[in-house]
Write a protein that binds this DNA or RNA. Structure first.
Lengths: 215, 215
DNA sequence: TCAAAATGAGCGAGCGCTCGTTCATGTTTA
DNA sequence: TAAACATGAACGAGCGCTCGCTCATTTTGA
């Protein structure tokens, strides 16, 4: 989708665009594993090159600086997240328990992408300001998808009406609950399976959405 | 409280314990500001020394390595957090709306310590493994305080009974909601005041705790 | 007077990044 | 058809520099 935009965003010495696309993916794939394992700062450009199976010289044919690599990695992760969430939402249409289905699918996406989400929490600050902003915009867009779901259910009467801000905050809460499974996994993972987590948190969210009309 | 323990944990060349305590605080105070501003990796030991008003040589009389400084900073932050939360809980005793009061006080602590919390999220991974574990234990202890509050209210009948795990997860949710105010502040801060946030999230939590018996 | 504390020049490992070079693969020319 | 030339992706030794850390020396204060 905005792949063209992305390719255009990071300049390169190399002429062949297909090759650029291919090599960058190859480099990003290698880099993301290293970033997850050792963090951005402790990973050297040489390690990235070695893991990608190219030379350090070649690496700099495709990127201008180390931060460029981090940005591309973040962008790939967000693309995948958004794709996951979007298709989770198409799977989960229909009335009453649509919300439960969306939550389940979203949490499963978070579960799968656990390491990646964690990395973004930790390394976003290492990006140049302008790209930091982009990463946050991506984050917001994913939240927006959930706002859409909640607003629709609210209007169709499947959920009690609540004002816009309340809906928005609920969306943020759900999104962050998904992230929480990743950044508190050192604890939660010991005591809950992902199925436990989904079940309990879904119940909690539903109470949050439907509860409280009585008084 | 465990200050003795802490001082014992990081060895030093200097004999006078009072001096050690004083200088370490002086260094940590300077370091935390720099870490918040530029991150751990981009902050140099020379910058820390300069900001603390001592020489680079002296700095290494009080710490063995840069990571030691980060650990001490994390420890100070957690102490302050825990103190804040503990006294928030003494302020907020009593029946019905005790929970609302605790949430308010806790969120205000998060609000005040926003930058610090953010830093811990970002830099914990830079710590040596053993100390990483300690930081997570601190995190858990704070959550434990909230579990205590919820369990008490549940038993006194001020909140509907729910099983242990459900209570535990609710505590985690509340804790993370506080953190969310810090790491989504770039968005939330634009659209909500801290008072808005407390009001809406408290309502949400109360619905989550009390709702759902009907049906 | 002398142990304790403070100093900062200096060290060298290791970093991101460059750039002169190589070489496989077209393309042109005779 | 084959020699001459052009292209550009790949390479990696090495440059300039920064950083964490040390230690010989000086200052302090009891």
């Amino acid at each position: 989708m905005q792949r063209v935009n992305r390719t255009a965003t990071i300049p390169t010495q190399v002429k062949n665009p297909d090759l650029v696309e291919r090599r960058r993916r190859q480099i990003a794939d290698a880099a993301v594993r290293l970033f997850i394992e050792r963090g951005f700062h402790k990973t050297t450009t040489r390690q990235i090159a070695r893991a990608a199976g190219i030379s350090i010289g070649s690496l700099y044919e495709y990127f201008n600086c180390k931060e460029d690599i981090l940005y591309l990695v973040c962008d790939f992760i967000h693309s995948e997240m958004e794709q996951g969430v979007t298709q989770a939402m198409t799977k989960a249409t229909g009335g009453r328990d649509a919300l439960a289905k969306v939550i389940r699918e979203y949490f499963m996406v978070c579960h799968r992408m656990s390491d990646f989400i964690l990395m973004i929490y930790q390394e976003t600050q290492s990006l140049p300001g302008q790209w930091q902003k982009r990463v946050l915009e991506n984050e917001l867009r994913i939240t927006g998808l959930l706002v859409g779901v909640l607003a629709r259910l609210s209007q169709s009467g499947d959920l009690p009406h609540r004002d816009e801000r309340s809906i928005e905050l609920t969306a943020h809460n759900i999104v962050v609950m998904g992230h929480m499974w990743t950044f508190r996994r050192w604890f939660l993972g010991k005591h809950y399976s992902i199925e436990d987590y989904i079940k309990l948190q879904t119940a909690a969210v539903l109470r949050m959405c439907t509860g409280g009309q009585g008084k």
